[in-house]
Design a binder for these strands. Structure first.
Lengths: 192, 192
DNA sequence: GGGCAAAATAGAACACGTTTCACTTCTTTA
DNA sequence: TAAAGAAGTGAAACGTGTTCTATTTTGCCC
């Protein structure tokens, strides 16, 4: 990502953080990033793509922070809770931004399918590492055999988290409730 | 819902069914429904609200059909699979419409929160009835005590279904995969 | 340093959701 | 049945995402 693209994404993040999705007006983004509107569209095909780029950037930061050390906790459930708590708190710290990002994630725009899949894979890897009690980075190391059951559980947890996140973004419930949904799921799926 | 409102929703459904969300242009909706644009906005606050009304209408039809008789199946898991299969197939029969509706459902628009919650409650009731093996309509009869564990499981299943549905709408995977996600979850959560 | 292709720019223009307004047509009620 | 208010209408206008165009600037090669 070149300099201009970075400025564009950072501006979008700043605007979303302050006033949410609708405040990310591309004319404002362009002006603030000191770039012409045409340049914005040379780099990104749409507003959604800018926000997905922002999601990538933010989630990578978050995952990097979480995944640096082995996940703390004596058993799968505790480690899973730790990971989702960290993710959720990291995002809810800037609620307007989080809502804007989840909106793009759930937009169903076919042009961002691969990016959405990457995000999905990123979280799944994190959760699987938590279940096993390894540092996520290690995952690159052990080459092959993934436990199918573990993958399924990780995927379920992620789906519950995502659905609950969307519910939170839509005002259905609050942050603690969101975490509670995931934790209850973990309680049922993971032996202590 | 008066006559005009019905025509508006039906037109929106027809347009979404043919060509998806972006094809539901409100000027076209108004023209086809033989109504002025101002009248559309007298009945519905936004495009999202029209589509949520459509979702309510369609899901009620679907649930009415599914919930008429006791759900077939010898155990919880089979009954749950039956219910989600029926729901999913009913929706995927008109994929463009389904994508448009799920988009509204996941839009995060705070003005439709209650409607989204109602939809959620509707599905939860259906799933809980399937877990127990009762006709959903009976639920009104037995007054009180809901098993907390059953409610949690129903909620998880619904969340997985929803998340997977959003994934399908975004091109992440296909219909059978969607059902498989839910079924695998049911396998882990429900004793046969 | 001059020329050239690629990139950037300013700004107009278009599409569509949404709002507004002036006017007409119903419906109610006294 | 006439008056009043509610509802509907057609059309214009506005905001913002997106596209397009003509012009300028930049980076590079000879």
């Amino acid at each position: 990502m070149d300099d201009r693209a970075k400025r564009i994404v950072e501006t979008a993040v700043a605007l979303a953080e302050r006033d949410g999705y609708q405040a990310v007006r591309l004319r404002d983004v362009a002006a603030t990033a000191q770039v012409a509107l045409g340049t914005v569209y040379k780099r990104f095909a749409s507003k959604e793509e800018i926000l997905i780029a922002a999601l990538e950037q933010e989630s990578e930061k978050l995952v990097a922070k979480i995944g640096k050390k082995p996940v703390p906790g004596d058993n799968s459930r505790e480690r899973v809770r730790f990971v989702f708590t960290a993710l959720t708190k990291g995002l809810l710290r800037r609620p307007n931004l989080a809502k804007a990002l989840v909106r793009s994630l759930a937009s169903g725009d076919p042009n961002i399918t691969e990016r959405v899949a990457s995000f999905h894979a990123l979280i799944t890897a994190l959760v699987m590492a938590a279940i096993r009690g390894e540092a996520p980075a290690d995952e690159a190391v052990w080459g092959g055999e993934v436990d199918e059951r573990e993958r399924t559980i990780a995927s379920i947890l992620q789906n519950v988290w995502f659905a609950s996140f969307v519910g939170w973004a839509g005002g259905l419930h609050d942050g603690p409730q969101l975490l509670d949904d995931v934790d209850k799921t973990a309680a049922l799926l993971l032996a202590a």
